[in-house]
């Protein structure tokens, strides 16, 4: 019978201060995190993602209810014991001065070494494995302060792995990274969860990555409750749209992404099938047009994406009885706006 690595029962999180009523962030949180699972914690800014992570990590007391990490109460465990169950990677970018990658990762052995911090051969093996797991074994002797943000984040994860925790908590680990590094990091975390049987919980603003990479989503709902489900379920039943509802942006369940929400400026028919057509659609939607496909209702303006023999793309914009060809997408966009007498951006 599989035991959950993390479980909360009727947990309420928030901040209590003396002589003031406690500030409740979220309540009735009942969650289970299983071995080998990667879970993304999502929610708008200020919803309480960091508060929940801090509470789960034993850094902050819950207002009500309890947390169990591998069956133990994180608030009662001695720090050393807890550090063997739970590794944490925080948002803050850390300057550590003149430490090598290896020396920084070796700090993760803290709960296992004696008072001098001396590393046994077994500790060295664990550190080597942790560095290899995030793909930075080749940097081991480099000073940390010469690394890029992405590499640095990997070192911090390797350090958490060196603690050999059952549960890895990461607070927005992708925040400072460019898109390729984010995808890469997500891949690493997925592999860590799958191969080692650890549970990985990360908070993120990267909805697209979370939708594609997570086994489960924990989604902060307006009003301080948390919806749990597979990413696709939450999109289909509208929980996603509800959680991130706000002025100016809408979640498009077809694209699985957020879009700017403009009042529509006009209708355009789009004809074509290939990649240029897809990006032409995006360009039109960005400008606030409602784009109809072939079978949609006929609009006054039609854009046809033509592939010529020589491999060049041509945009043909028809308006009522006239048509004009444009060699570039931006010129075509200007052409469409001219047809509808819209103000030009240039």
């Amino acid at each position: 019978m599989l035991e959950p690595i993390l479980e909360t029962n009727d947990l309420a999180i928030g901040y209590s201060a003396r002589r003031r009523p406690p500030r409740l962030v979220a309540e009735s949180i009942t969650l289970r995190l299983w071995p080998g699972e990667l879970v993304c914690l999502l929610g708008p800014n200020g919803a309480g993602k960091s508060t929940l992570l801090r509470t789960l990590a034993g850094m902050q007391s819950p207002l009500h209810g309890g947390v169990r990490v591998a069956g133990a109460d994180p608030y009662r465990l001695p720090p050393r014991e807890l550090a063997r169950l739970l590794g944490v990677v925080l948002t803050d970018r850390v300057e550590v001065g003149a430490l090598s990658v290896r020396a920084l990762a070796a700090l993760g052995r803290y709960p296992y070494t004696d008072w001098t911090g001396r590393l046994t051969p077994q500790d060295e093996t664990v550190i080597d494995r942790a560095l290899a797991a995030v793909g930075i074994a080749a940097f081991a002797s480099r000073p940390v302060n010469e690394l890029s943000d992405g590499e640095r984040q990997k070192v911090m994860i390797a350090r958490a792995l060196a603690q050999e925790p059952k549960l890895l908590l990461l607070d927005e680990p992708t925040a400072f990274l460019d898109l390729p590094r984010r995808v890469e990091l997500m891949g690493i975390l997925r592999r860590l969860a799958r191969e080692s049987g650890r549970a990985v919980l990360l908070s993120t603003h990267d909805l697209d990555l979370a939708l594609r990479g997570a086994d489960q989503l924990w989604l902060f709902q307006p009003g301080g409750s948390i919806r749990v489900g597979a990413p696709e379920e939450l999109v289909l039943d509208g929980a996603f749209q509800a959680a991130f509802h706000g002025d100016g942006v809408v979640f498009d369940p077809h694209a699985g992404a957020f879009k700017f929400h403009h009042p529509p400026v006009g209708q355009v028919d789009l004809v074509g099938h290939d990649l240029p057509t897809l990006w032409t659609r995006r360009a039109l939607e960005r400008e606030g047009f409602v784009v109809n496909g072939h079978d949609g209702p006929r609009s006054a303006v039609q854009v046809e994406v033509l592939n010529q023999q020589c491999g060049q793309t041509l945009w043909r914009v028809r308006h009522v009885e006239t048509w004009q060809d444009f060699p570039t997408l931006s010129q075509a966009m200007s052409g469409v706006k001219a047809c509808l007498s819209l103000p030009m951006t240039e």
Binding site: A57, M59, L107, G108, P111, Q163
Partner: peptide
């Protein structure tokens, strides 16, 4: 005697705590 926790404190108090420093 305090050199080991001082090394952990290089990462700041939150990290030090998460690595088992009292």
């Amino acid at each position: 005697l305090l050199t080991k926790p001082l090394n952990a404190l290089l990462l700041g108090e939150a990290y030090a705590r998460s690595m088992g420093v009292n």
